[in-house]
Amino acid sequence: MKADTDTTAQRPNQRPELAAIDDETMRGVLRKMHLIRKFEEAAEASYMRGLIHGTMHLSIGQEASAVGSTLPLKAEDYILSTHRGHGHCIAKGADPARMFAEFFGKENGYCKGRGGSMHIADVEGGNLGANGIVGGGLPIAVGVGMSIKAQKLDRVAVVFFGDGASNEGAFHEALNMASIWKLPILFVCENNKYGMSMDVSRAMAVPNVADRAVAYAMPGIIVDGNDLPAVAAVAREAAERARSGGGPTLIECKTYRLRGHSKSDRNLYRTKEEIEEWRNRCPIRRLEAELVAHGRFTPEELMTIEEAAQAEIDAALEFAKASPDPDPKDLTRDVYAD
Rank of each mutant, 00 (worst) to 15 (best):
A3F: 15
D4Y: 04
T7G: 14
T8E: 15
Q10W: 11
N13Y: 10
P16V: 15
V29H: 04
V29R: 09
E40A: 04
E44F: 15
H57S: 05
L58E: 08
S65C: 12
G68P: 00
S69M: 03
T70V: 14
P72F: 01
P72L: 09
A75L: 12
D77N: 00
L80S: 02
R84T: 05
R84G: 04
G85H: 01
C89H: 07
K92S: 05
K92D: 00
A94G: 07
M99S: 11
M99F: 01
F103C: 11
G113W: 08
G116M: 05
M118R: 09
D122V: 11
V123T: 14
V123Q: 05
V123N: 08
G125D: 00
G126Q: 06
G129R: 03
N131T: 06
G132K: 03
V134F: 02
A141I: 07
V144E: 02
G145C: 06
I148Y: 08
D154N: 14
A157H: 01
A157D: 10
V158R: 00
D163Y: 03
S166V: 04
N167T: 13
G169W: 05
A170C: 13
H172F: 04
A178N: 00
W181E: 13
K193F: 15
M196L: 14
M196D: 06
M198K: 09
D199G: 01
R202C: 12
R202N: 08
M204T: 12
N208W: 10
N208G: 05
V214G: 02
I222Y: 10
V223H: 00
D224M: 08
V231P: 00
A232G: 00
E237H: 10
A242V: 07
G245W: 06
P248I: 04
I251M: 08
S262N: 12
S262H: 10
S264G: 14
N267K: 15
L268W: 12
T271I: 09
I275H: 01
E276M: 11
N280K: 15
R285T: 14
R285L: 15
R286D: 13
E290K: 10
E300F: 07
E300K: 05
M303E: 15
E306A: 14
A309S: 11
I313M: 03
D314F: 13
A315V: 01
E318V: 14
A320L: 07
P324C: 03
L331R: 13
R333E: 13
D334R: 11
D334Y: 14
D338A: 14
